[in-house]
Amino acid sequence: MEGQQKNKEKNKYSIIVPTYNERLNIALLVYLIFKHLRDVDFEIIVVDDGSPDGTQEIIKQLQQVYGEDRILLRARPRKLGLGTAYVHGLKHASGNFVVIMDADLSHHPKYLPSFIKKQLDTGASIVTGTRYVKGGGVHGWNLMRKLTSRGANVLAHTLLWPGVSDLTGSFRLYKKSVLEDVISSCVSKGYVFQMEMIVRASRKGYHIEEVPITFVDRVYGSSKLGGSEIVEYLKGLAYLLLQWSAIRNISSDK
């Protein structure tokens, strides 16, 4: 217990949040992160893709409240994609752990302590939030959305044997070195990227643990799931089936 306390003081967590037009949500998110992470050393790295709605102005106001060393604005000129947003944020991360989460409040910061605790208890390289176990859940999906999600999940589990229950979730805690290693070999876009990250990490033999999270679909605006997303998903699945796994990856490690 005492050792744990020591670790807690030594560890630093960099929370990377990509944004695009999230001026209201990012302010609420920052407040909630500070509310729920009290005795932990952390920084929030906002990677804003040139939002026209003034997201960056809000970040500057938040920096006045919480301090410029706690909230870092690392903007990019325009929309450049999710995967590269994490790479970009990672370059500026000073913590030994990195948390990635969405800005739209579908990921609630109140789960951050359970991610950290799980990592300290198990020594895992990755702790991933899962919506599909007891204690987790989803709010705001219609039947069609649930059906697609379940179908996609069964298909992925039958074909890929990933060893984690929620492949496309994006609320995760990584050891920084592990994230750097995994992210460098990922090529997918969108939410297939999340699946590729966790499948690659699992095949590389990293220790992955899960914690239940709830997912409240974004209050403003609708999250889309059309035919093209399904095609992208199937393409991603086929791509991952054809990838080399563990042994080859480690032996060819630069």
């Binding site: 609630h108 919506r131 599909y132 176990v133 007891k134 987790g136 859940g137 989803v138 709010h139 705001g140 649930k146 059906l147 379940r150 179908g151 999940n153 069964v154 709830t214 997912f215 409240v216």
Partner: peptide
């Protein structure tokens, strides 16, 4: 599996 998954799909209206 899809059917069971749908029936036991965890929801969380209180979280909203």
């Amino acid at each position: 599996m899809v059917g069971v998954g749908l029936m036991r799909f965890p929801t969380c209206p209180q979280e909203a």
